[in-house]
Computed example of a mutant assay.
Amino acid sequence: MRRRVISTMNVQTKLLFYEDPYLKECKAKVIDINSNIVWLDQTIFFAESGGQESDRGTIEGIDLLDVRHDDFGHILGKTPNFGQGDTVTLILNWNRRYKMMRLHSAAHLVYFAVREVIGELEVIGSHVSEERARLDYSFQGRISDYFPQITEIVNNVVSKGLDIEIYRKPDNPEIRIWRLGGWETPCSGLHVRNTKEIGQVRLKRRNLGKGKERIEIYI
């Protein structure tokens, strides 16, 4: 077994999930290891960004607990018995990932539907987990009063089976743009290719205090 403890990292990990978010398994070379943290030359595991939680899965059968966004260190459930230079198998928890992709795309639809129904509102928080997505707004009143119109717009777009496009800004390739027709917004998360994959969207309201409203998004 080959292992060395490191104090600094300068690993460039190829992010396969941006090239193909539907990729469920791959091989990767171990670049370095520090206890239960592993750095790889490439990965299918998304690290939390754009409000979307990190992926789960396994590396050589060991549970993946988290992925660090700053350096793509993969945090495992135990210290592995493989070492630097070894080739390992990565298997994604696809059901979890796909649910979050669907919810993340649904959240963008809700965001733009809110703009069409109510107007421009300040977003004060957002999150995408396997259970639900949420959008938090600065808003006076009950935002759920508008849910029938918002839901109608969203589910109408879902039923049309429209293609979702992800592209990078020509003048700044590090910025990824989510686009659906005339709707577009910067986003570093992962999404489905077509709105029909999302399924029927349901909304719930939660009041966060005076002037703060949360829309919870379920599929």
Rank of each mutant, 00 (worst) to 15 (best):
Cys187Pro: 03
Arg205Cys: 00
Lys196Ala: 11
Thr87Asn: 12
Glu184His: 12
Met9Tyr: 09
Glu116Val: 02
Lys99Cys: 00
Arg96Ser: 01
Ile118Thr: 08
Val192Thr: 09
Gly211Gln: 06
Glu216Lys: 02
Thr151Glu: 14
Ile150Thr: 04
Asn34Thr: 10
Pro148Leu: 00
Lys29Tyr: 08
Glu60Ser: 14
Phe139Leu: 08
Gly85Thr: 06
Val67Thr: 05
Asn36Tyr: 10
Asp71Arg: 00
Arg4Trp: 08
Arg193Phe: 10
Cys187Leu: 09
Val123Arg: 13
Thr13Cys: 15
Ile219Tyr: 02
Asp163Gln: 07
Tyr18Met: 13
Ala107Gly: 09
Arg2Cys: 05
Lys212Ile: 14
Tyr167Arg: 15
Ile198Gly: 04
Glu184Thr: 04
Tyr218Phe: 15
Gly50Trp: 01
Thr58Gly: 07
Ile118His: 05
Gly73Asn: 06
Asp66Pro: 00
Asn155Ser: 12
Gly73Ile: 12
Ile166Lys: 08
Val67Leu: 10
Val5Tyr: 14
Gly211Asn: 09
Gly73Ser: 10
Lys29Gly: 11
Ala113Cys: 12
Arg202Val: 07
Ile75Cys: 07
Leu65Glu: 13
Glu174Asn: 14
Ile31Ala: 13
Val30Met: 08
Thr185Asn: 15
Thr43Met: 13
Gly51Lys: 10
Trp94Ile: 08
Ile177Arg: 12
Ser159Cys: 06
Glu19Asp: 15
Thr195Glu: 04
Arg132Gly: 00
Gly211Lys: 06
Thr87Asp: 12
Arg205Phe: 05
Ser138Val: 11
His104Arg: 07
Trp183Leu: 03
Lys169Pro: 01
Met1Ile: 00
Val123Lys: 13
Gly50Ser: 12
Gly85Cys: 07
Ile44Asn: 03
Glu130Gln: 10
Arg168Gln: 14
Glu131Asn: 11
Arg102Lys: 15
Val192Glu: 01
Gly199Met: 04
Asn172Met: 14
His74Ser: 02
Ser138Met: 12
Arg102Ser: 00
Ile215Leu: 05
Phe72Glu: 03
Gly209Cys: 12
Trp183Ser: 02
Arg179Met: 10
Glu60Leu: 03
Cys187Lys: 03
Thr185Arg: 14
Asn207Val: 14
Arg96Asp: 00
Gly83Tyr: 09
Glu48Gly: 14
Tyr18Val: 13
